[in-house]
Design a protein around this nucleic acid. Structure first.
Lengths: 338, 338
DNA sequence: GTGAAAGCGCTAACAC
DNA sequence: GTGTTAGCGCTTTCAC
């Protein structure tokens, strides 16, 4: 493998000069710079980033820790993050944890083992042991939490207000005349699920409708789980006229299951999702859903992370971004009003 | 940041001994080993991987170069690769190229700049300039090409036979009595699209049906492109009775568009996809599709890559894995036979 | 069995 | 403006 010394020898300068040509060209005289550049180009030399990183004690790598790395939901967020990372000279590594805490920690450990400089956290667990005696800022590496709120305060984070968002969604269903509204929840350990459930309950309360435990089913953010949950809801003796699924994927699975059971959407059931993934527009009927501002979330993440990467201490900033209800064809008036 | 010297001092041994305890514990006497281990545990020391990599000139990182990193299609392949990588001590980095050649090359360059040891290539371009005078093996880093066949021979690769797969799919539609079969193709520069189109043509030819250019529409692997293509196909005066989309995503978009136009599936149109993504089972109607053996593809990739990582020269091995036609509800007898 | 020392490739402080 | 030198953190000969 060709190194800086080879270039130096070939261009008849010192390694230091080669380094300068590549990093601070202004410090070098025209002729030497040209000579070095010529050799670099001819040989295709690329600095060994291990040497650079070791010397600079900076890797210019970031790691995104994601429960389900390659999910449709995260894609636009990740894309925005990566684009900004690149602009600032960082590369983004994706760490798929498959929901395993051990994997969350092993990716988080990349910072400690100097393979990455900072972390974007999409899980609800903080993959570090924290010492309550000391401040978070001194214990944690550059870090930002997004989408799935972490259960510890003081971590910089970017989210929508899941409670208000769910409240809005349910309000909309209520406005269509629905009185019994089923829920296909995610998994009950997830803070966003809990927040959305709170929003659901508060909307019902405001409307003077009593809460019915039977109408809450766990779909676990899985296609199969949502199908099962749908069957249960649709089989209730006093069945709901609307179903609010806590993800678009689950909503799609719900619609498909209802179709198979012979129901029409939105005539028999209104279905409302969450996330506004790109399929939402292309399923049939197209899906009414709560949109999260993915790109903005990604941008905000980097806005909170970059200062930390530049050495500023972690700030307990919570950025709440606006959600939006996107009304499409999967929701309609309650059957009794048609 | 705590280093090997700190551990050494604390445990009253030399850095060399600490290193031995961590890598070749057998070379160290019981008592020193215990002492070192205790300190390591207490301090939470993790070796700086930059130092290790620099010294060993090996990073234990692999990079997967993917046109659309976070697509539903690639997920199971990536997951299998990552799992095997991990078992062999490697980490997998995902590089999303967003179809840009410059990004393909910049990720490929991670090997040259010693940020990664090998490449898994999911694009159809080889992101290296090759010198025809010399062998591929001496010019290329450890590398394997998958899913989207690269246009240069001699690269180890893993694929299904796209031509035969498309042929089988069309044969199945023909067996249902369809005589006019529309195609929503990917993008025409992609080798897999071309191969699938070949399969389509050969199946028609064998059935004695003449090829009609009008029935081929480009969907470009995009949801919107597929919707547009569907509208064109369904508006033809002599319209097809079946549509073969070259990806499940496009097939889903196609079905949704047909629904919106008032058509029934499979009564008016049969729709057949490609990939067998997890939604295929959950859309309505559930989607008939060509399954690629994702996990097996991932495994085969690592089987071809690991020997190269261990220093063996690149072999021009082409692994062709079996595809499978999965019949579900979106295909049925041609309308004239119902 | 263990420690001292060299060196992986690079950059930056320092001297000239 | 440029070269010399030290050192980032680690592993591995080479002596002992």
């Amino acid at each position: 493998m060709i190194g800086i010394k080879d270039i130096a020898k070939e261009a008849k300068v010192s390694p230091a000069t080669v380094s300068r040509v590549l990093r601070n060209p202004d410090l070098v005289t025209e002729d030497k710079r040209a000579r070095v550049l010529e050799v670099v180009k001819r040989t295709g030399y690329t600095p060994n980033s291990l040497g650079v990183s070791l010397r600079m004690s900076k890797t210019y790598n970031l790691v995104a820790i994601i429960p389900d790395a390659i999910s449709v939901f995260n894609y636009p967020v990740i894309r925005a993050i990566e684009s900004l990372a690149l602009q600032n000279g960082y590369s983004l590594l994706l760490g798929d944890t498959q929901e395993m805490e051990s994997r969350e920690r092993s990716f988080a450990n990349m910072v400690r083992s100097r393979q990455a400089d900072g972390i974007l956290l999409f899980c609800s667990r903080l993959p570090f042991d924290i010492d309550p005696e000391r401040t978070l800022a001194e214990q944690l590496p550059p870090l930002v939490n997004a989408c799935e709120p972490v259960d510890i305060d003081g971590i910089p984070s970017v989210n929508i207000d899941n409670t208000v968002a769910a409240n809005d969604a349910v309000d909309y269903l209520l406005s269509l005349g629905h009185k019994r509204i089923g829920v296909i929840a995610g998994n009950m350990t997830s803070p966003s699920t809990i927040a959305r459930l709170d929003g659901y309950k508060s909307a019902l309360k405001n409307a003077g409708i009593s809460f019915d435990e039977q109408l809450i089913q766990i779909g676990d953010y899985a296609l199969s789980g949502a199908a099962e949950a749908t069957r249960k809801l649709a089989s209730l003796t006093n069945r709901p006229t609307a179903i609010f699924a806590f993800s678009d994927e689950m909503a799609m699975s719900c619609m498909s299951t209802l179709h198979k059971m012979g129901f029409k959407i939105p005539q028999d059931f209104s279905v409302l999702g969450f996330d506004n993934i790109r399929y939402a527009e292309y399923c049939s009927p197209s899906l009414t859903t709560v949109a999260q501002p993915m790109t903005e979330i990604g941008i905000a993440c980097m806005e909170l992370l970059l200062p930390q990467l530049n050495g500023e201490p972690m700030q307990p900033i919570k950025r709440i971004l606006p959600h939006q209800l996107i009304v499409r064809e999967s929701t309609g008036l309650a059957p009794q009003l048609i």
